[in-house]
């Protein structure tokens, strides 16, 4: 048993950079056909990614906070590939704000993308995935498990994703579709670059392994959860945080 995904089709949201891009690359290296989504994404990403396998990379732009775009994305996968084996709900935003300063717009945008987005995609994809069996991986966060000051809405959205993961795992298990989540800690991407040096220094002190995570650290865990290596694992949240204490 290995991580070979030849012949399988994977859909990764938020795949134009950061963790999603690393996930797409890992799945591609494992032999999968990969459909990449983000709001701003075009064929140029195929050159960055594909190397020897441009025929296995597909791009489909869409805003995953819009339910119609989410459905359209799955319809496009169905039309082109007729199957879906792995769905990685990775697209997400984080807008830090203290409780008194959370705007209605920040709340709406965060919940629409981070929580409603994965739910819409799971709803649209579940029956297609049930045809062949498959694996759904939701990218949550340690903040959704532990909470963090200044991240009330983000934490709520990611805790919601964990609840959705567990419920979907129960409902879809009889159909052969596994549903798990990863909970990254502090990973160096555009998202964390915006937090500034002080937050970074503080976060590093809290990480047992003594370094920030890389997108590849998360991508390897996602590959494991997409592959047959994890065939008997569903409804779980896998922390990928280097032993972070928050």
């Amino acid at each position: 048993m290995n991580t070979d995904l030849s012949g399988r089709v994977a859909l990764v949201t938020g795949a134009s950079r950061g963790i999603g891009f690393a996930i797409a690359r890992r799945l591609l290296e494992a032999g999968a056909t990969v459909v990449l989504n983000a709001r701003q994404i075009d064929a140029s990403i195929v050159d960055q990614l594909a190397g020897p396998a441009p025929d296995r990379v597909f791009v489909q732009a869409g805003d995953m906070s819009d339910p119609e775009d989410a459905r359209q994305l799955v319809r496009a996968v169905f039309a082109r590939h007729k199957r879906l084996d792995a769905l990685i709900n990775n697209a997400g935003i984080m807008r830090a704000a203290m409780i008194g300063m959370i705007s209605d717009e920040d709340m709406r945008a965060t919940l629409d993308l981070n929580l409603a987005g994965p739910i819409h995609l799971i709803q649209a994809a579940a029956r297609l995935m049930a045809r062949s069996g498959g694996s759904i991986v939701n990218v949550a966060s340690v903040v959704g498990m532990e909470g963090a000051a200044g991240q009330l809405v983000y934490a709520a959205s990611k805790a919601g994703v964990i609840g959705a993961t567990r419920a979907a795992a129960k409902e879809l298990a009889p159909k052969g579709v596994r549903v798990n989540a990863v909970a990254p800690g502090y990973i160096e991407t555009d998202m964390t670059a915006r937090l500034g040096d002080e937050v970074k220094a503080q976060s590093l002190k809290a990480i047992g392994l003594g370094r920030a995570g890389t997108p590849e650290d998360v991508a390897d865990a996602v590959l494991f959860l997409c592959s047959d290596m994890s065939r008997y694992i569903t409804g779980q949240v896998l922390r990928v945080d280097g032993g972070m204490v928050i």
């Binding site: 459905r71 799955v74 319809r75 169905f78 007729k82 709803q123 029956r127 297609l128 049930a130 045809r131």
Partner: peptide
Amino acid sequence: LVAALETQFDAMLEA
């Protein structure tokens, strides 16, 4: 039933 119809017609139904 929906899954059976989708397989039979090779389609994806709307919610």
